[in-house]
């Protein structure tokens, strides 16, 4: 495979990994106040992402860093064109990270409430804005951006609720399952609206470039499967389905962005030279298996369901 194509695929993989992993982090961050009663249950809900959220966020850092190195003009064009939404994303990630890390270190209930607010808003802002930003990039249309934002927000809610149901037991799990069903009632119609609302696509374009559509339809099917599996209490399979749905949404996005990730800018024009791409390829090939290995091992270490603290 040609190096620019390979690096576009690497960046698509990193962004998609970020959506899949941080997607449930965002969902848990928004849902934690809704699925828990009292401090013990709140901590139980947030502890499901406690050990992993920071590592998940590095997927975003890596995606953006890889864009900077491999496609400087894409990186610079995207971040400067969506300047204010990116400022809000960053503000969200700041209050969210600080809220998650500090809520166990503050003394008073009122301070924990501030942290919870930071986690909730800081999860909702990026969850909405990334969807809105990429939808706007694809369609250059305010309504499409709104639908895209609501879709990604709802998708994160569903994905997070299913993750909570998988990782907890007791009342939190029961509420998380109800939240997952409510979220799927929102996300399915919005998803269909997002698909059917794409105005400029004709049958000719469809057949010329079927991959975005195929991925998007498969994503919707996985969503429906996730909702059905949650209904039947198959937490592990439901999570697999929602994770696949997020991944397929990412695949739909990046196949639609190929080969011009910004209007008027192709990957070939944006790309760094063959030397840089080649040397980064070798380092990535050597390092990535280790990264995936130890991150996967972290999930294995914290694989068990959490119960609420009794103290």
């Amino acid at each position: 495979m040609e190096l620019t194509t390979l690096w576009f695929a690497v960046i698509a993989f990193l962004w998609t990994g970020f959506f899949v992993l941080e997607g449930f982090d965002f969902g848990v961050g928004m849902l934690a106040p809704l699925v828990s009663r009292g401090e013990g249950e709140r901590r139980q809900a947030l502890a499901t992402i406690g050990p992993v959220w920071d590592g998940n966020e590095v997927w975003l850092i890596s995606a953006v860093g890889a864009m900077f190195a491999a496609f400087p003009a894409w990186y610079a064009g995207l971040l400067s064109a969506f300047y204010l939404p990116i400022v809000l994303v960053l503000a969200g990630l700041i209050v969210r990270g600080v809220g998650l890390e500090w809520r166990g270190k503050v003394a008073r209930a009122s301070e924990r409430a501030w942290c919870d607010l930071g986690v909730g808003i800081g999860s909702a802002l990026p969850a909405f804005l990334w969807g809105a930003l990429f939808a706007d990039l694809l369609h250059d249309d305010a309504l499409a951006a709104l639908v895209g934002g609501v879709f990604s927000l709802a998708l994160c809610l569903l994905h997070g609720a299913v993750f909570l149901a998988l990782k907890t037991s007791g009342p939190v799990r029961a509420r998380a399952r109800r939240a997952a069903l409510a979220a799927s009632a929102l996300v399915l119609p919005v998803g269909i609206a997002a698909l059917s609302g794409i105005p400029s696509t004709t049958a000719a374009e469809w057949s010329a470039d079927p991959w975005p559509w195929a991925c998007a339809l498969a994503a919707m099917a996985a969503l429906a499967a996730g909702a059905a599996l949650t209904w039947r209490g198959r937490d592990g399979w439901a999570f697999t389905a929602t994770a696949s749905s997020v991944a397929l949404t990412g695949a739909a996005l990046f196949t639609a962005l190929w080969p011009a990730p910004l209007p008027g800018l192709t990957v070939a024009e944006a790309a760094s030279g063959p030397y840089t791409l080649g040397v980064l390829t070798w380092i990535g090939l050597i390092a990535l298996p280790f990264v995936l290995g130890y991150q996967g091992w972290t999930y294995w270490v914290f694989r068990r369901r959490l119960t609420a603290e009794t103290s």
């Binding site: 860093g65 900077f68 491999a70 840089t276």
Partner: peptide, 12 residues
């Protein structure tokens, strides 16, 4: 980006 981006990507 071709030069400066590489250490940033490696850092991540």
């Amino acid at each position: 980006g071709d030069v400066f981006g590489a250490p940033l990507a490696l850092e991540a």
